[in-house]
Design a binder for these strands. Sequence first.
RNA 1: GGUGAGGUGGGUGAGAGGCUGAAACCAACAGUUUGCUAAACUGUCGUACGAGAAAUCGUACCGCGGGUUCGAAUCCCGCCCUCACCGCCA
Length: 423
Amino acid sequence: MLQVNYIRENKEYVLQRLAVKNFKQLDLVDVILNLDNRRKSTQLQLDNVSSQSNSMAKTIGELMRDGKKEDAESMKQRSMLLREDIKLLNEELSEIEQQLQNALVLVPNLPHVMVPLGKSAEDNETVISWGTKPDLYEKAVPHWELAAKYDIIDFELGNKITGAGFPVYKGKGARLQRALINYFLDQADAAGYREMQPPILVNEASGFGTGQLPDKEGQMYHIGLDGLYLIPTAEVPITNLYRDVIVKEEDLPIKNAGYTPCFRREAGSYGAHVRGLNRLHQFDKVEIVQIAHPEKSYEVLEEMSLHVQQLLQDLELPYRVLCLCGGDMSFGSALTYDMEVFCAAQAKWLEVSSVSNFETFQSNRLKLRFKGKEGKPQLAHTLNGSALALPRIVASILENNQTEEGIRIPKVLVPYTGFEWIK
RNA sequence: GGUGAGGUGGGUGAGAGGCUGAAACCAACAGUUUGCUAAACUGUCGUACGAGAAAUCGUACCGCGGGUUCGAAUCCCGCCCUCACCGCCA
């Protein structure tokens, strides 16, 4: 959520940046500024009337104490009239504030100056490529066939238990999952992140804080009876740890990481290209989250990007880093890098991580601020990234490392899996 | 799920219709003193919105939302949460 004062002071820039994000409702900016003007003048009126009423009430108290009953009574009468005004002005103010809020949450974050122009994924800019596409042997097959061949992931069984998009990992498949999670967590730990195990159900306030609500309810599983949502990513609970918090400036950056399962309804996103592990309703992910000083947040973003890249290099997976164009970025992000791994049997690039700087977009909703020794609290910047999401990593390892003899486990994972081959 | 107690500033905790944005203590910060550290003393010490060039001033906030009253942290109603005991249970 953008700050109204920022919009007011930088209106032209805001309009220009929103256009980069292909945001169509530019007239919202004027709607917001008008509502805010009304908010201010209404509040001024309300404050004045309240002030009068307060001092009258005080005087009445004094008159009563001095035994001047009649004077007190007549003042009571006058004070009662103010009460009506206060009530009406209060209602008007809440109404305006509500409208203002409703308008503000519709406006996406402003893209950073580095964000390339563009409308869709086609226009994303490749900033880094690493590794070489493997030469597969002749009989190479996509991972869903490998999963069946070696009996390590069972999509049919998942269908029976729950439905499509909820696979069952079996034997070495399950072990590989666990190895990846532990490996990713250990690497995060080594990079200075504190490991967290947050709840995987969150309340509405948390959904709002990170920007899933309102508007994207349809993407989350909702438990109506208790008013809770299954998290689509650990970003939600881990970032919300700092909702309504003022941290010390010297404690920045704050680095937290966590493994959680993630749940996504993926409503309307199914198509022919979605097979096997490519898109699931439930998947595992290690997420890294940082709260950073506004002056340092882009350095932090680069650091996080390098962390993710290191993981991919360690896993020997060829990847590329994309800087997302305005039209392909998420609602709340100011700059996003997507990491894509080349999945050889499908001959496709699969997104395995997304690292973003939200600047103050989330912190404004979260009321997450920092404060130095002097000065007022100010909004911190929040960043997060997947490090990493498992399913497509598993798909890539299976496809890229398949040989006549079986599937080779990347060296760095062997201490975690306890086996070198899936045969 | 039942019963009882309770939710006040960074923390402990007082206040029980007007003198309370809130005592006191602790923590924190700045300073004085002192070889250093410590101690002692002095001062500062919530957030948001608004008005103002600024000093400063106004308003709101004592879990959340309503109500009573000229006036509510304080009384009433609803909700949420925490704790204790009972029940159930990995």
